[in-house]
Nucleic acid binder design. Structure first.
Lengths: 218, 218
DNA sequence: ATTTATTTTTAAGTAAGCTTAAATATTTTA
DNA sequence: TAAAATATTTAAGCTTACTTAAAAATAAAT
């Protein structure tokens, strides 16, 4: 399938899971940076290909086939992230950008080789679950946003939910990495600022950052 | 640049170097599997972009800019081949197919990371030279076709000049690999059949195969 | 040196994946 | 609940990268 189609079903899948849970054409268009008209157009085409259900003015819903395609692309994306993260010294943001391109040009064979090399990992370096070759994906998620974390407790970083360059540069500089351990040492200004200890560092995070860092209680 | 454009300049570059040394639209079209009309069309477009010189009925000639683009893509292709060959157990044919796709979706940064990881190799697993980041490429080549090799002499495999699946499966089964050593033990039926020893194996090659294996005298 | 064959070019047309503008439907809010 | 705001759809049009068919030029062969 074409890059445009793969990105379209991926956007629907992701929107459905995390974001605003709104998969109407306008939201998908916004996410992909295309016009609403283009999204409606594409929706009709993909409905004809049985990748999604389209009814005028309704939210777009992936069919089983469409979901399978989305998970196949997401698998490749996350495997590339894990692989590049392991092999090369690059920021998570750069790795994300590479994976965004490579995911569409990767055979199932190569994906399997990468997965095998990495020991069939279940999560990528953002903490996102990696679908297996059959399109099965771990859905259980006990993590909470750092914004809801409790002063004095110790946590493990479960997810870095962002594509933002600045955020990942900040992460790289402050040992904020998937599976690292941190302790919440102080919450202040109405819980909008959070001071954490991570490794030997003590840093203060603003609200924006605490909202996109997800943690599991230790 | 688009995939179509990158493949077009690459085809011209390669035709100019190895093949029939004919870069007229029809030959490029044949190589790319598109119609002659499409090739002429593209040639005009690329001339407008200063990637090649186009004159009616004449061979296509890459400009400096076009050559640079071709070498940049070829660099990425060959780095991927070298990298995948090192990392994964895949046939040269499979590796070639993956590289053919990945080459167009690889940033200069990632190419550099791969090159660095491999210790800036000068040749890929087919024995093709890898252009450096400045678009400089090793051109010296002392190798001869195995069809011209001499009975009794020992050679090093310098180049496997093919994209053919069956050929590479044969290679994989018979230790025919870039830089391996072989001895020509017998030439017969008017030098059309060549018997070689490679490792502990003795195998007979037909004319087709001897023509695409290039060797250096030891 | 003509005829014949082959290549190249031109012309017209197609599909994919977009755009903007206008019409229509839905949602919000006063 | 009617008006205003927002979203969605339709319509028309664009660009890229192709296609086939026919015309024109070049190359090969008798």
């Amino acid at each position: 399938m074409s890059v445009a189609i793969e990105n379209f079903v991926k956007a629907i899948y992701n929107n459905d899971k995390h974001d605003i849970k709104d998969t109407k054409p306008g939201n998908i268009a916004k996410k992909l940076g295309i016009s609403n008209a283009a999204a409606t157009d594409m929706a009709k085409k993909l409905a004809a290909k049985n990748l999604l259900n389209y009814e005028k003015y309704q939210a777009l819903q992936l069919t089983e086939q469409g979901t399978k395609m989305a998970l196949n692309v997401i698998r490749k994306h996350r495997l590339w992230e894990a692989f590049l993260f392991k092999m090369f010294d690059m920021t998570l943001h750069d790795i994300h950008r590479e994976a965004e391109l490579l995911e569409h040009q990767t055979s199932d064979l190569l994906a399997e080789k990468i997965s095998e090399y990495l020991g069939h990992p279940k999560f990528d370096p953002h903490g996102d679950p990696i679908p297996n070759a059959n399109g099965e994906i771990t859905t259980e998620d006990t993590s909470i946003s750092l914004a809801e974390a409790v002063e004095g407790k110790t946590y493990t970083i479960a997810r870095l939910m962002s594509d933002d360059k600045e955020f990942f540069e900040f992460c790289a500089q402050n040992q904020i990495r998937y599976r690292n351990t941190l302790t919440v040492s102080k919450q202040f200004i109405g819980n909008k600022m959070t001071q954490i200890s991570i490794g030997s560092n003590t840093i203060v995070l603003n609200e924006d950052f605490t909202k996109i860092i997800y943690v599991d209680e230790n």
